[in-house]
Simulated scan of single mutants.
Amino acid sequence: MSKVLIISDSHGLTKELEIIRERHVNEVDLMIHCGDSQLMPTDPWISGYLTVMGNCDFGAEYPLETTAEVAGRKFFITHGHRYSVKSTLMNLKYKAEELNADIVCFGHSHVLGAEVVAGTLFINPGSICMPRERFEKTYVILDLQSDKINMSVYEHSGRELTNLAREFIL
């Protein structure tokens, strides 16, 4: 059993990233930041997160996208602004197929969401700074099990939003 923390769109927040990292560092195998941290890779607050470049990350030396593998599942990580994620997941779906990704992590829209499209799980953890379509400032933890994935949603304060938990069979 492995766990992955996914966060995005922190837009300059520092203390919050550090608190969330310290809260979960001993229970997760990977921490992903889907961009728009507005921090430099050398900033201590973003250390420990696998981070990609967002449209507001000027001058930072992050990759535009990356992949990672945890518990035999391939993750594709991007901010999403180059894939028009505010209007469609189709472009991300094609990229996921090209990479043979099981899970796609993205941000940009600040809208919390999770859905399976053609056997691939698409996760947007929302924003811990400026959420849209809901009040809670959120991040996600995926519990990767051999036959399913359990998603837990947390407020930046650490409170679990149990009504938003979902189980996905991939």
Rank of each mutant, 00 (worst) to 15 (best):
N124W: 00
S8G: 13
G80V: 02
L50P: 08
G119H: 04
S2D: 10
E160Q: 14
H108K: 06
R73N: 09
D36Y: 00
L17K: 09
A60W: 05
D102A: 07
G113I: 10
F75Q: 09
T78N: 02
S2E: 06
R21K: 15
E155I: 03
V104P: 12
A68M: 01
C56D: 01
D143Y: 10
L144C: 05
T51N: 06
P41Y: 03
A68E: 00
R73G: 00
P41V: 09
P125S: 04
I46S: 07
F122I: 08
D29I: 02
A114V: 09
M40H: 12
T14D: 03
K15W: 08
L30A: 06
S37N: 13
E65F: 10
T88Q: 08
I123C: 06
R73K: 15
L13S: 09
G48V: 09
P131W: 05
A118C: 08
S152E: 13
Y49A: 11
Y49M: 09
G107K: 07
V140W: 03
V70G: 00
M1G: 11
M1W: 06
T66C: 14
Y94N: 11
I123A: 03
E167A: 14
A101H: 07
K148M: 10
G107Y: 00
T120F: 05
V117G: 04
I169H: 15
T51W: 01
D43A: 15
T88Y: 04
K137H: 13
T120L: 09
I77E: 03
I169F: 09
E167Q: 13
V25T: 13
D102F: 01
G59T: 11
K15P: 00
D43G: 10
H79V: 05
A71F: 01
E18V: 13
S109T: 15
V116L: 04
